[in-house]
Design a protein around this nucleic acid. Structure first.
Lengths: 320, 320
DNA sequence: TTGAAAGCGCTAACAG
DNA sequence: CTGTTAGCGCTTTCAA
């Protein structure tokens, strides 16, 4: 085994408790002693055993995050935010992918609960009740979901959607169609709130490229001049379908996405979309978790979203 | 605190050791007893305290993975493979993003070492020596990197590159240029091996969209009819540059990528690229780690890559 | 300001 | 097959 606190104590000529204090309660030790201990610690390369520490403190120093789909670029960037902030605090991060399955999601949170101090749950597909149950099992922070009594950070997609419509209207578009995401998705409701009835609603589609490809055909038959997509992945599918059918974007149809994933800048035409402050959301989630662990109350934070106008939208074509 | 092993023992009318055995060494307990214990466990919702367990076994039941860039879609899909296989074994996974920085990378591995049974290191930027040092600190499995004496799983990019060139040659192309990745990247060497001198080498570029955009201008000036890119992200940048400069792909220039990330199917033209079995690599890495933990020797696995022909390549244009 | 000692919850000998 | 016991490495009273 590695070097233990006893080795340090021995070599520093103090008791183990002094070593312990020197490390985790510096104020309780005479400065000179503390320095001596620290030197030995450095010399020996001593690292406290986290298992032993957490056995007694009841804290693990870890946190967990559950996302619905690691392959959706939206989530890795939240992960990155979480890791950044957690890392600053010496906290390590467990991740899990629920593969868009609510049961798996709940199960993962429960499993994680045993070995983390708290968990961040992204874009949860669970019912409010289940989430409340989970929040009783472990400190919980929601991202892009609001449940009364549970901490959460929201990227304000309602406002984002409002900006989209306003942008389109300013371009003269009068007939918009919304290519919706999963009916069960809370974010979908939220976006429809932002829409406020200013677009015709089109079914619910899988929130990925294929879903968008399928949606495009339907959307085209409506005769609308602007397609508002639930997310960038759907928009990308739409773009591909339209390109394949020689429909010019944005000349004939304006298309908007949502999320501003990396690829939104890479496709052509580059996508007009709503930027979501994903990394920031991850960081804020960690802060909220920390405050929860300090005994603070459940809190709610809202992060602003901003419309990013790129090349996929333009003025409404003159009616024939 | 939660329910402990003593609560279970008490209610099941057995000693704590029997409970312990019923859970982790079923063979050593009479079936009837075991069943009784299991019932109580279920009834009480008992979950063994992992800290206590690992304090004594020296095992954490966790594993770590370090990737250079979570935002590159290539890596989340490895993560997913890792999680899938680890999850089957009841192992949890820590992740870290080194942001393409070797020092951070080494530091992360060292930090993780304290709280995991082993770590998976993806596309490491570290020197062989450092990796060997790290492998002495914790069981280590490399993905897309070979270092003697250290376990590794390789997606055979040399062969993939060979297939790319063969494909291009079969289309009549005679003048290829390779838009290389970071000079320090081991994968880059590997791909050049596959190239076997059959393409002109062009500087080293950042392995992302911007890098590709920059590379395209240089590549264009060479007069080559086929651009072989280090990875898909670079290829995407190239595509964007060419589109912006009215160069038709594949009519005027054929472009190939590498990795087969999600976006490779979404862009237009869809990218001819080399498919990397990323999820499988993640799974195999976990297997290798498991065998290492069982005291097995360092092993090496090679996974085949396959060329995926899409729309970005076609026959060489007739010389003017 | 420091040390001694008592466990945290669990597993692993060692007996029986 | 099961129970008793001794810690794993650390923090934290309680005394000194």
């Amino acid at each position: 085994m590695a070097v233990t606190i006893r080795d340090v104590a021995l070599q520093a000529q103090v008791s183990v408790s002094t070593v312990s204090r020197a490390l985790s309660a510096p104020g309780l030790v005479k400065e000179a002693t503390r320095q001596r201990v620290l030197d030995v610690v450095a010399g020996l390369g001593y690292q406290p055993n986290r298992a032993a520490r957490s056995l007694i403190t009841g804290r693990t120093g870890n946190l967990g995050i559950v996302v619905p789909d690691l392959l959706n670029p939206f989530f890795p960037s939240i992960l990155r935010g979480v890791q950044t902030r957690a890392g600053e605090a010496g906290t390590s991060v467990f991740f899990c992918d629920s593969r868009e399955d609510p049961d798996t999601e709940a199960e993962l949170v429960r499993t994680m609960a045993a070995q983390v101090d708290g968990v961040v749950l992204c874009a949860s597909l669970l019912s409010d009740d289940t989430i409340v149950d989970l929040a009783a099992v472990t400190p919980l922070v929601l991202i892009n979901r609001i449940v009364p009594g549970v901490s959460s950070v929201l990227m304000d997609s309602a406002s984002g959607m409002d900006q989209v419509v306003a942008h389109l209207e300013s371009l003269g578009h009068e007939d918009h169609v919304y290519l919706g995401g999963p009916a069960a998705a809370w974010s979908n409701d939220r976006r429809m709130q932002g829409l406020a009835g200013r677009a015709r609603l089109l079914g619910s589609f899988e929130p990925n490229f294929n879903g968008g490809y399928a949606a495009a055909e339907q959307a085209l038959s409506t005769g609308a001049t602007a397609f508002i997509c639930y997310n960038d992945l759907i928009a990308l599918g739409v773009l591909a379908y339209l390109a394949a059918h020689d429909v010019k974007v944005p000349e004939q149809i304006s298309v908007t996405g949502f999320d501003d994933i990396l690829y939104a800048t890479m496709c052509s035409p580059a996508l007009t979309t709503v930027h979501m402050p994903t990394e920031a959301a991850g960081e804020v989630a960690v802060d909220l978790l920390a405050s929860l662990l300090d005994g603070g109350p459940a809190e709610h934070r809202e992060l602003p979203t901003t419309l990013v106008v790129r090349a996929s939208t333009t003025a409404r074509p003159r009616p024939a």
